[in-house]
Design a protein around this nucleic acid. Structure first.
Lengths: 106, 106
DNA sequence: ATAATATTTGGCAATATAACCAAATGATGA
DNA sequence: TCATCATTTGGTTATATTGCCAAATATTAT
């Protein structure tokens, strides 16, 4: 791994890491259907609103989402709409895993 | 987020988390070109061999790779070959981010 | 101006990760 | 059998993440 590669993979890993949390992943997928108000997440997720705000900050700082204040509320949306793309693959890993556990193969 | 969703997103996040480390991501992409011996990673990555072995364990336990011992060596390969798929999107996030930083837009 | 609402920020404690060294395991070759 | 090589596992320390509470900020409504 050359220094250049290291830099590149560090940047990429940072993005995956931002998505690698159940709540954040759920939020990202929700946003794939269109923008949402923070308040919707607060209602839907069973966690303190400050916790949700911090999750949003993680996604924001990773460049995955962007927010806009409208009145009292803040609306977030995906900055790059392809986030869903890799869920198919993630799902494939899960399915393969389940199949293999059942079949007792590697 | 229903309890069922929570379970689902926790499983998905686990997989992303496994990939969300520069060394592990590099290894995964390397394996997308075909199987590799652990020794190749040990040579290529500047980290203790035990560290590399632990990274491989993380990927293995996440169901992303699978290893096979052949003689003294262990060869790993991707269990689901689509890992590369989402790199395009990750890259798109990085590019968008760079563009916006330059242009001073959100 | 004050109060109420929506969100972010600061701070803290609990837990999880990452990296290293040393030691254990497994396979081959002398 | 004994030494050697490749890899994994155990243990430890440093660092990072998570989630809650309390407090700060910003916007609207009274």
């Amino acid at each position: 791994m050359t220094p250049m590669e290291k830099e590149r993979y560090t940047a990429r890993a940072r993005i995956l890491k931002a998505l690698a949390h159940p709540t954040r992943l759920w939020i990202a997928e929700r946003l794939a259907d269109g923008e949402c108000c923070v308040c919707e997440f607060v209602d839907a997720v069973d966690a303190d609103f400050s916790t949700i705000s911090k999750h949003l900050a993680v996604l924001r700082e990773a460049g995955i989402i962007t927010g806009e204040k409208r009145g009292k509320q803040v609306y977030y949306r995906l900055r790059v709409p392809c986030v869903l793309n890799f869920m198919d693959c993630v799902e494939a890993v899960l399915v393969t895993d389940a199949r293999c556990r059942n079949a007792l193969i590697a």
